[in-house]
Design a protein around this nucleic acid. Sequence first.
DNA 1: TTTATTTACGCAAACGTTTTCACCCGCCGT
DNA 2: ACGGCGGGTGAAAACGTTTGCGTAAATAAA
Lengths: 338, 338
Amino acid sequence: MTPVNLKSLAEQLNMSIATVSRALRDSHEVSDATKARVRALATALNYEPNAYASSLRRNLSKTIGVVIPKVANHFFALAINGIEEAARQSGYHVLIYLTHDDYAREVSIVQHLKGGRIDGLLMSVASGTEDFAHIKSLQETNLPIVFFDRVCAEVATAKVTTNDYESGYRATEHLILAGCRHVAHLLISNNLSIGQFRQQGYLDALQAHGLTPDPDLVLHGVMDNEQNVALIRELLLRRPDIDGVFASVERLAISTYHVCKELGRRIPEDVKIIGFSNLEAAALLDPPLSTITQPAYEIGREAAKILLRAVEKKKAVLPAQSIVLESTLFERRSTASE
Amino acid sequence: MTPVNLKSLAEQLNMSIATVSRALRDSHEVSDATKARVRALATALNYEPNAYASSLRRNLSKTIGVVIPKVANHFFALAINGIEEAARQSGYHVLIYLTHDDYAREVSIVQHLKGGRIDGLLMSVASGTEDFAHIKSLQETNLPIVFFDRVCAEVATAKVTTNDYESGYRATEHLILAGCRHVAHLLISNNLSIGQFRQQGYLDALQAHGLTPDPDLVLHGVMDNEQNVALIRELLLRRPDIDGVFASVERLAISTYHVCKELGRRIPEDVKIIGFSNLEAAALLDPPLSTITQPAYEIGREAAKILLRAVEKKKAVLPAQSIVLESTLFERRSTASE
DNA sequence: TTTATTTACGCAAACGTTTTCACCCGCCGT
DNA sequence: ACGGCGGGTGAAAACGTTTGCGTAAATAAA
C-alpha cells in the first residue's frame, strides 16, 4: 500500500506538491477548480496530513501540555474535562502528565517539555515544589504557561484560581455561625499561595468573630492517607474541645469522617465538618458533607482559553490575564446546628 | 539567542552533526572520548532534541493516544493514572481525547489520529457506537490498538477487561442471598459486550436460584442523569415489589439512592442496592454502598503495557494478549440482611 | 611488507510539510 | 507593440533529526 501523502496526491493529480499543499490549506493563490480536484481526491483517499512534518516545518505542534499532581481526584478530572473541551474547539491536542506531587518528577517532565513537543503549558504545581527554576527555564524558551489552582507566585504569567481567601473565610465563618468555638483547620503542608490564602481566611474569620486563633488547631497533612488518619485521630483525642473542622483538602475531610466514626464522635452534633470538595456524592455521605466547591470545569476551560489565545498570537501570556472564579458553599447536614 | 540543536552543538564541538547525534544516542561507533565531550556540552546547554524532527525521521512519536468517554469518572481517572504510569516508565507521552459518549466525536477523533501523531491507541469505546468502521480503518494503517473495559468485539485486537459475567452473577447472587426476590438490573443502553456479559450474569444468577427473569425489571438508562432519576422513580413506583437493585453503572446506583430517599424507601430494609463503582467514598455513603469494584488502575496499566510491547516490536497487537482482571465485591450496609 | 579488518567519523539523503521565489501566460492600459 | 501586472503554478530550500554509505586511519592478520 503506497503511503498517502502530498507527493502521492500530487502524482495522481499531475500537479506539484506545492499546489496540493496550498489547495488543502485553502490558499487564495490556487484556482477553485484545482482546489476542488485536490479536495476530492484527498477525501477519497482519506488523506490526513502528517502531524510531525507539519509541526517541524511550522514550528508549532497544535498541542498543549497539562501537568497536574494527579488525575484520580474529581477536581483535576473536571479541570481536564474543561481543558479538553477548549482545546478540541480550537483544534488542539492535549498531552497529560502526572507529577504525583513529586518534585523530582515534575522537574523531569518539565525538562522533557523543552523538546518543542507542545505550544503551551497548563500547570498545577506539585505541593512539594519549592524551587521554580525548572519552570522559569521553560518559560525562557518562550513557551506560554498558564497556572491553574495550584499556582506559583514566583513565575510571572497568567493564573486561574478560585477566591481562596474568601472561601476559607466563609467556610470558617459558617462553622462559627453554626455554633463552633474551637475550629480546626486541616491543610496540606505546602508553601503554595493557595494554601496560605485559605489559612489567612480561616484566621481572619476567627478574629472577626472574637475567637483567638490557636496554632495547635492547625494540622498539616501529608501525602499518605493512613498517616493523615493517625494525625487527625491524635488531634481529636488531644483536643476533645474541637467542635468544628475546616478541611482545605477533600481527602482530609474524608479522613476526618473515618476518624469520627472510629472515635464515636457524632457529626454534626459533636463535630461539624466542612471541606473543599468536588465530590459528586457529597450529598449522599453519612451525613451529607457541607462543601466549598470549586468550579473545576470552568477553571480548566478558562485556563485553556487564556493559554490558547496566547499561543495563537505567538506571544507570552500576560499576568494581567489572570482571573479568579468563585467557589460555592453548599450547606449540608455535616454543619447543621441543632 | 541561537537555537540549541544538533547543528549548533556540532559547530561548537568542531565535529559533524552525525557524530553528535550518534554520541547522544550512545551509538557504538563513536569513541568514548567524543561521547563525553558531546554529552558535557549538551547538558551544559540544556539540549533537548526536537521531538518532531525525530518523530518525522524515525516515523514514530513516542506518544500513545487514549480515547475514552469521559474523565470525570473515577474508573477512567484511575485507568489514566495506570496508563500514564506505564507510559512514563517506557518514556512515552500520553495524548488524551474525550468522546463524551458521542459517536460523531469519536469518529472525528479517530480520523485525526491517522496523522501519525501516535504510535498506539488505548480505547474505551463510546456507549453509542455501533459502527466500527472508523476503528477498523485506523487499524488498517498498522496502528496498534488495545481496548480496555468498553471493548469492541468486532475488532480483532487485545482487550483488557474485568470478569463482567462473573461480576454480574455474583452481584445478583449476593442480593438474592440477602433475601431479595425481585431484583432489578439497571444498565446503560448499549450493545457493548461488557453490558451484555453483566446482563447474562444477572439472568443466570436468577435462574440458578429459581427466580424467573422479568424483562420489566431491566432498565436501560440514558446519558442524562435527570432522565435516569425519572426512569428509576417510575420503575420503583410501577413495581413496588422490587426489593433489590443491581446497577451496572455507578451513576445509576447514585440515582437510585436519590430516588429511594425521595420515595421514602429505606436502604437496605426496603430495597437493597449494589452497583459497579470505583467511588472512593462508597463506604461513607448513607448507607454505605455495596460495590463491585474494578481494578481500574491495573486495567489501565496492563492495557498500556500490552500496547507498548506491541509498539516497541512494531507489530500488531495480538488478540491472544487479551487479559481479564478480577473485580472485587465489597459487602456494605446497602445490601445487609436484617 | 602487504592485505584484511576494525574503529571513528563525515557526507548527504531521506522523512512530509510549508513557503519563498521565480516563472509563464494572458490581459490591461498606453 | 510593448511594458506591466496579477493569477496560477512549480522548483527547491528549509525545519532538525536519523542513518546508509563511504573513507581515512589504525590495528590485526597474512
